[in-house]
């Protein structure tokens, strides 16, 4: 279980935005997004979430679809 980071994905936004799922999977340097049930969805790879480097590449790719939460700031 991730202890430091939570990554929230809005599945609806990802589905609606063409190519976003593929982009997220490609862009994350620590493989936090894995392929989902179909081509328009992603699954968060729980085991990798604490590796998040806070590089913002995912949130820049989709400000509405992805949120990266620092659990240690709550």
């Amino acid at each position: 279980m991730a202890m430091f980071i939570r990554v929230d994905v809005d599945a609806g936004v990802v589905k609606k935005t063409a190519g976003l799922a593929k982009k997220l999977i490609e862009i994350c340097p620590v493989k936090i997004f894995g392929p989902g049930a179909d081509a328009d969805s992603v699954e968060v790879v729980e085991d990798n979430v604490d590796e998040c480097t806070l590089c913002d590449l995912c949130t820049k790719a989709s400000p509405d679809g992805v949120k990266v939460v620092k659990l240690y700031e709550e």
């Binding site: 202890m3 430091f4 604490d50 590796e51 480097t53 806070l54």
Partner: peptide
């Protein structure tokens, strides 16, 4: 080397 990633790893290992 990132201090935050090191802190995360060390704390996880301890827990």
């Amino acid at each position: 080397t990132r201090a935050d990633l090191l802190a995360r790893g060390v704390i996880k290992g301890v827990i």
